[in-house]
């Protein structure tokens, strides 16, 4: 018996209003005819058209997509390996340090990560640019992938791996033919998570990027500092739309995976 009373309904309505009203208003005013962001002047898509003319934003968006794509792909590979190491390699030397390096970036203030990564690049005389932003993004994204893969592996039946080995499959082929396909949904959602993390990051990119590698969040930030404009609302709306689409897809994949697990457990 579940008790679902007035309090619960009230807190859900208030909670979700709080979470969503700001975003909805933001989206709404991106279609505002008026330049005044707080006065409704009729429906218009002119800010989107204007956006398309803004070379600075387009360049930044292109940089961001490149960085996000490369960093999320690399982070997925490294993070998947790290997740397997955390769950299936037992107690190796330096395990505590390893898991510390996986969990710490998830809570570590971004200013610290950004500053320290930058100082190392400077000390090693590595030129700042797209490359350095990508390296920094891979590093913190892979930790998220590792945690996602790790939690999937905790419900993975080891005897599947053993069965494949027992049937004459080599260890590497076993990973490719059995383990990877089974944990694939987790790996895919890890990739999507890395992609959006990279897409969203302002602080670390500000530290590690150089001339010519301004990312979209950096561009938006510099625009925001000058004031609220419908153009920012428009670019934000596009970003929110892209991410929403990605998350909905990922959660549908995740749900299917969950149902599959449930089904196998029931039979």
């Amino acid at each position: 018996m579940k008790r679902f009373g007035t309090f619960n309904i009230f807190s859900l309505i208030v909670g979700f209003s709080f979470l969503y009203i700001p975003i909805i208003l933001l989206i709404l005013f991106s279609f505002n005819e008026s330049r005044l962001v707080t006065v409704w002047g009729g429906f218009s898509t002119k800010w989107y058209a204007e956006l398309m003319q803004n070379q600075g934003i387009k360049d930044a968006a292109w940089v961001t997509i490149k960085v996000a794509f490369v960093s999320s792909t690399m982070a997925t590979i490294l993070g998947t390996i790290a997740g397997l190491v955390m769950t299936r390699f037992g107690n190796f030397k330096g395990r505590t340090l390893f898991s510390g390096m996986i969990y710490a970036p998830m809570v570590m203030p971004e200013v610290i990560i950004g500053l320290s990564t930058l100082l190392m690049f400077v000390a090693l005389a590595i030129d700042r640019g797209i490359f350095t932003v990508t390296l920094a993004h891979i590093t913190f994204s892979m930790c998220y992938v590792a945690v996602v893969v790790q939690s999937r592996m905790s419900s993975y039946d080891d005897s599947l791996t053993e069965a494949a080995l027992d049937l004459g499959c080599t260890p590497f082929r076993t990973f490719m033919l059995i383990t990877l396909p089974i944990i694939l949904p987790a790996v895919v959602s890890g990739w999507l998570l890395s992609f959006t993390l990279s897409l969203d990051d302002l602080v670390i990119a500000s530290f590690t990027s150089g001339p010519g590698s301004t990312t979209l969040p950096m561009k938006i930030y510099s625009m925001v500092r000058l004031g609220v404009t419908p153009e920012i609302n428009a670019v934000s709306t596009i970003l929110v739309g892209v991410v929403t689409l990605g998350v909905v897809t990922a959660s549908l994949i995740g749900r299917r995976q969950k149902q599959q697990i449930l089904k196998t457990q029931h039979t």
Partner: peptide
């Protein structure tokens, strides 16, 4: 619905409050 804002850009969500 809880997760969705978690994925949405931090910067954009803060910006939304300025208006």
């Amino acid at each position: 619905l809880v997760i969705l804002p978690f994925w949405t850009s931090f910067l954009i969500r803060v910006y939304a409050w300025i208006g």
